[in-house]
Design a protein around this nucleic acid. Structure first.
Lengths: 211, 211
DNA sequence: ATAGTGAATGAATGATTGTTCATTCATTGA
DNA sequence: TCAATGAATGAACAATCATTCATTCACTAT
């Protein structure tokens, strides 16, 4: 009888396409965080993944596609986390709003390496239509959801603010707080940033503020 | 008698060091906006300036120094504008606060090309100590001024908010609004952005809000 | 065992890059 | 008018880059 196949060897030279692609995308994130996007090369990525030079073209055809897939990965992960948060939050619109605002400071999302990736691609978005499309479509959907929630909270509380302004302002503030965490993590922790973001929400919707 | 020298010829082949450096920095800004930082080369910059290949090394020694000087230029210009706004604004702390918040949407500062430069360097800041230093020192000084003004407004109005939170939140929100203007200028004008920023201030300091 | 399959390698290639420097040319003082 | 000065040029160079592909090697089916 042959050995069970369920437990793979410690050192596998070959892996499934999915595994390798995920591995390379993670290596790309580390490389962008360590070297910056403009000095991220096929060599830095493959070295970060402890694989050979040609591996990227084998799995992604080109460097450009690898970078796009990396951006898509980060954006999709973000979307998936806020969707889950939306579902598992309390029923009231305000509770959902607070839960969504907290996603930006979630352990899974708010990692310094990943923030570096966001800003790296934002920095190139002006000149790269593909990057810009991915980013704008992502934020558009998120903003629409936020705006809807704000509208409901405003209706319930009779507030005199515009839903679009609050949603856009919240989104913008959280993005700006990401920058603070990226540039000076010693002076801005995720928890501090979340407090600032939450205190904005409380200020706008005082009647709903819980704590 | 010789001709007057005050009126230079239309086509001057040589120019003063200052003029050339300023010209090259402007060309760099355009190149970053058009091609992105990672595809901004000595060739794209010198071509954008309608000058020859070697001109940059002549005036800036290296590409790296040109990029640093470009960042310093944009950061200094920003500082100079908010300093002027601070001086020429009304005497009250709240008036100064509104004036400072408006600087981010000023014609001189809030140009799409320049926003692209800010985000391009922010995107590389994680891996480039020099960029990070320039950016953090700039924002630190600005934040301190904003925090001081917020403290005074809070004291006057007896508000129950933390000055540091408001200053940091305002700074972050304006930065995030810059991103909206950079990525989708059709959906976010400078005026709209300023309204959102101002409505944040009004919400925090309702007793001071003028209009 | 063994042949067959395709994942992974890494040296080689051509294109692109930043930098150098001998040369050209506009400008100025005598 | 004519040297003298130094700003500007652009061809040449070495280094670095993304990409290719013949070869190697791990794994699977027979």
């Amino acid at each position: 009888m042959s050995q069970t196949v369920t437990k793979p060897r410690a050192k596998r030279r070959t892996a499934s396409k999915q595994q390798r692609q995920a591995q390379l995308i993670k290596a790309t994130i580390r490389s962008i965080a360590k070297h910056g996007l403009s000095e991220t090369t096929m060599a830095t990525v493959s070295s970060e993944a402890s694989l050979s030079q040609g591996i990227i073209n084998l799995h992604f055809q080109s460097k450009e596609r690898l970078l796009e897939e990396t951006l898509i990965h980060v954006v999709s992960e973000y979307r998936s986390v806020w969707c889950k948060a939306m579902d598992s939050a309390g029923d009231s619109a305000y509770e959902k709003l607070e839960a969504l605002a907290a996603v930006d400071f979630d352990k899974r999302i708010c990692q310094r390496n990943k923030l570096a990736v966001w800003f790296a691609f934002w920095g190139e978005s002006r000149s790269r239509l593909t990057y810009r499309k991915i980013c704008t479509e992502s934020s558009r959907e998120y903003r629409d959801v936020l705006t809807g929630l704000c509208e409901e909270v405003i209706r319930q509380g009779g507030y005199k603010v515009r839903a679009g302004h609050v949603a856009t302002g919240l989104l913008a503030m959280n993005g700006g707080l990401w920058l603070d965490m990226l540039l000076s993590p010693a002076e801005m922790s995720a928890q501090q940033a979340q407090e600032i973001s939450l205190s904005y929400l409380w200020g706008v919707f005082p009647a709903h503020a819980s704590s």
